[in-house]
């Protein structure tokens, strides 16, 4: 597979380390919402189809990326820097 890195263009998937569901970005606050942690840690989606997932450009620029990928066809529909997404989400709060 090739991952279209937002800054570096197409890079081979071998350079990346896979983590999984991008919902991991939505970490609850440990002091104010401890009850939300069980779902955060254990309940994640694993869809057959379009999935937003985290990839780390380990042999590259060490960016965490959010790759929107169809897990059935491996089509990649979009890639964002996780940092931008996380900052956007924090700004929206």
């Amino acid at each position: 597979m090739l991952i279209p890195h937002p800054l570096l263009g197409l890079r081979d998937a071998q350079e990346f380390t896979y983590l999984g569901d991008a919902a991991l970005l939505n970490r609850p606050d440990g002091l104010t919402a401890p009850e939300a942690f069980n779902d955060y840690v254990y309940l994640r989606d694993n869809p057959a189809g379009v999935h937003r997932e985290l990839w780390f450009h380990e042999q590259g620029d060490r960016s965490w990326l959010i790759v929107t990928r169809n897990t059935l066809t491996h089509d990649i529909l979009g890639v964002e820097l996780a940092r931008d997404v996380a900052l956007g989400a924090k700004g929206a709060k």
């Binding site: 570096l8 197409l10 081979d12 071998q14 350079e15 042999q59 590259g60 620029d61």
Partner: peptide, 17 residues
Amino acid sequence: VNLDPRRYGPGTATRTG
């Protein structure tokens, strides 16, 4: 290295495997 030399020509640097 698995880099496209057309993108990684003179004046570039990148980390890879």
